[in-house]
Amino acid sequence: MRPLLERYAPPLYGTIILPRTGDAATAEDILRDTMATAVEKIGRFTWQGKSIYPWLRQIAINKVYDLHRQSKRSRRLADAMAQELPQESDPESHADAQLIAAEDQRQNRARITVALEGLNERYRVAIELRLIDELPRDECARRLGITVGTFDVLLFRAVRAFRKRFGARAPEEAV
């Protein structure tokens, strides 16, 4: 079972868990719990000619829900992501793990894009340059024609605005 788990750990982490927790250490803990639960309950898995990935994916999603339920955190961003989980496409309708992971990735990008489009143009550019393209701060500042200090403030305000806008898409009482 180890090869299967090692194969599916990266897509579970990158497309399901991390985008819904925002914290690498927490995401790794959830991934480990997901794997442990899968090993413990492998007897319940029924082979239906499909990949085991949808089953692992559902366990991971449940773990993310559990995290928010147990901690009762009011992080609007995480809640916003969790709120959208039930609206996602049925993983059973997919046949291949890579397709599912790619679809999850596409949906994650779409959510971010929608939120970015609602921001001030300069905020959007700052976030894209620094967090999506991962350019160094001085390069970001150079491209925007501002000092590094001003870019720091621009990014700081941009992330705050993104958080406010993205979190506002979900009800406060989410999860």
């Binding site: 985008p19 927790t21 995480a78 993205f166």
Partner: peptide, 8 residues
Amino acid sequence: EVATVIRG
């Protein structure tokens, strides 16, 4: 965490 979500 917001930045991590965006990057992730």
